[in-house]
């Protein structure tokens, strides 16, 4: 049992590192572009990775309190991606 828990904690630390790394790589894509579509995609990926980081925080602390945060960030991320894309496509968000 104890080895299993140690392994799980190790995997958790590794996941934190990898998610941080993914955020950095998405940031690279956000900076170098080259087009608007890539920037929207990079921002969308960053939102999804942020959800992952919050979920991991919840696992690490062993609480359920971050559930609502995850849900709301998922909704906000989706809406902002769509709003950004619609603005580029139509020049307006709500017609």
């Amino acid at each position: 049992m104890n080895t299993a828990i140690d392994l799980m904690n190790g995997a958790m630390m590794l996941s934190f590192v990898i998610l941080g790394l993914s955020q950095l790589m998405a940031m690279v894509r956000l900076v170098i572009g080259p087009d608007t579509g890539d920037r929207i995609l990079a921002l969308d990926t960053m939102v999804i990775n942020a959800i992952g980081l919050i979920v991991l925080l919840g696992i690490a602390q062993g609480t359920q309190v971050y559930f609502e945060v995850t849900l709301i960030i998922a909704m906000l991320g989706f809406v902002s991606t769509v709003a950004y894309a619609r603005f580029v496509l139509r020049g307006d968000i709500i017609e």
Partner: peptide, 26 residues
């Protein structure tokens, strides 16, 4: 014990796929 191992496995899978996504993006 089973839940701990399942968590271990799922964490590894998640880490691999998010890394692949970021590598693909760059």
């Amino acid at each position: 014990l089973f839940a701990v191992y399942a968590t271990l496995f799922l964490l590894s899978v998640g880490a691999v796929f998010t890394l692949v996504a970021a590598i693909g993006l760059v």
